[in-house]
Amino acid sequence: MRRIILALVEDKPGVLNRIASMFRRRGFNIYSLAVGHSEVPDMSRMVIVVDNAPPNAVDQVTKQLDKVIEVVRVEDITELPIVTRETAMIKVRASPATRGQIIEVLDLFKGVEVADVSPNSIIIEMTGTTDVVESLLALLKDYGIIEIMRTGQLAMVRDSQLPD
C-alpha cells in the first residue's frame, strides 16, 4: 500500500539526503518524490510517496522525519481528503500512419497535450491523478513507449471536507 507524506522543510543543502536516509536505512522504496519552493520564503514543500511499507512503520518514519532539524512539519496525509496530481511526459513511437490513432486515444483523456511531433515519435504531456496517468500509459503501450518522465505525485489537503 502506498502512503503519501507531506513535509515542509528548510531549503538548505543536505536536507534531501537526511530525509531519504530515513527510508533507505529501513529498506523502504520511495515510489515518487516531488520537491519545490513553498509559499514560505526559504522553505520547500515535499511530497514523498512510499510503497510496500507497513503503515505503522511509516508512522514511525514520519516521527523520525520530524526529528530532522530542518523538517518544520511532516504529516502522513494518505487518509485525509486530498487532491493529487502528477505530470508525465511520454515519448511514443508514432509514424504518420499511427499518429492519428494515438491522437484518438489522447482525446479520451483530460489534461493531455502534444508537446512535440517528430517524424517517428511524439511527446505527450499529461497532468492528472496517478491512476489516470497509469491508464493512459497502458493504452499507449502497444504503440511503443520510448521514454517516460514523471514529476511524482503532488498532493494538497482540501479545505472543503468533501469526498474527492
Binding site: 543543502p13 543536505g14 539526503n17 537526511r18 536516509s21 536505512r25 532539524i69
Partner: peptide, 14 residues
Amino acid sequence: VTGATLPVTKHNYL
C-alpha cells in the same frame, strides 16, 4: 564527513 556521520549524529554541519 557530514555524509558519513549522518546516521550517528543528532545533527551536523558543513
